[in-house]
């Protein structure tokens, strides 16, 4: 355990844990969009900036990528930090002007209106979906593509990704709700990736409840005990 100083107060934390997590653990609010505690940290959205005391002068660093060490001292709400977060938010908002969560967060950070021409389709390129698909699902069906202002998230060749199992983790984790899922008859569609999957029907009630591709993966990965009945019945009938 090490001692870190946040806003002048001392806290105990496990060495190497990310500062953002330490702050959240202790009820200190730091806005963030590309961080998730079960995923590797990325540092792309730049909202979780904090002021780090340096040898010569202080600098702004992302707390989600900053591992804590003994005596680390940061401030999370200086005028500098607030200015930086507001201006970064001014850049994020035009990318996802229709997202309720982004609009609320923007207002909290002092951004009331879209100040730059908006061409956003909702994706703020935070990469949560990419990391979730790789690190949690193990499918790695999508990735970033291109670079600079042309950077996007898409399946290979922007075509229907064969390795997507339709689990919907990306849909749930997306902070701007720009990945949508649709179920009709015995088909599930992840609209953004143009992925359509057949669903397995419950042997009792006949309702389609799980993409077949997911059934395959679960069967393959489960060692003991065998998934058995869980995959035959829908959650309601179990």
């Amino acid at each position: 355990m090490v001692t870190v100083i946040i806003n002048g107060k001392k806290y105990q934390a496990e060495e190497g844990r990310k500062l953002l997590q330490v702050a959240l653990d202790n009820g200190i609010e730091i806005p963030h969009l590309c961080y998730h505690e079960n995923l590797s940290s990325y540092g792309g959205c730049r909202l979780c900036l904090v002021e780090l005391a340096g040898r010569k002068k202080s600098s702004l660093v992302t707390s989600c990528t900053l591992p804590v060490s003994e005596g680390l001292e940061v401030k999370t709400d200086t005028p500098q930090v607030k200015k930086a977060r507001r201006l970064v938010m001014e850049m994020i908002l035009p990318q996802a002007p229709d997202s309720l969560r982004i609009r609320v967060l923007a207002r909290e950070l002092g951004v009331s209106a879209v100040s730059f021409p908006s061409e956003g389709d909702g994706c703020i390129r935070c990469g949560l979906c990419v990391r979730a698909c790789e690190e949690l699902v193990g499918a790695g069906a999508i990735s970033f593509a291109s670079r600079g202002s042309a950077r996007t998230v898409e399946p290979p060749f922007a075509e229907e990704p064969e390795s997507c199992i339709g689990c919907g983790t990306c849909v749930v984790i997306c902070p701007t709700d720009c990945i949508k899922m649709e179920e009709r008859d015995d088909e599930r569609k992840i609209i953004r990736w143009k992925r359509t999957l057949k669903m397995k029907s419950c042997v009792r009630c006949g309702r389609p409840f799980l993409p077949l591709a997911m059934v395959d993966v679960i069967t393959r990965r489960s060692t003991s005990p065998p998934p058995g009945e869980r995959l035959e019945l829908c959650p309601d009938c179990r």
């Binding site: 790789e134 790695g140 069906a141 999508i142 990735s143 970033f144 593509a145 399946p155 290979p156 060749f157 990704p161 390795s163």
Partner: peptide, 8 residues
């Protein structure tokens, strides 16, 4: 390797 990785 994943196709997505190569595409990236």
């Amino acid at each position: 390797l994943r196709l997505a990785q190569l595409y990236r």
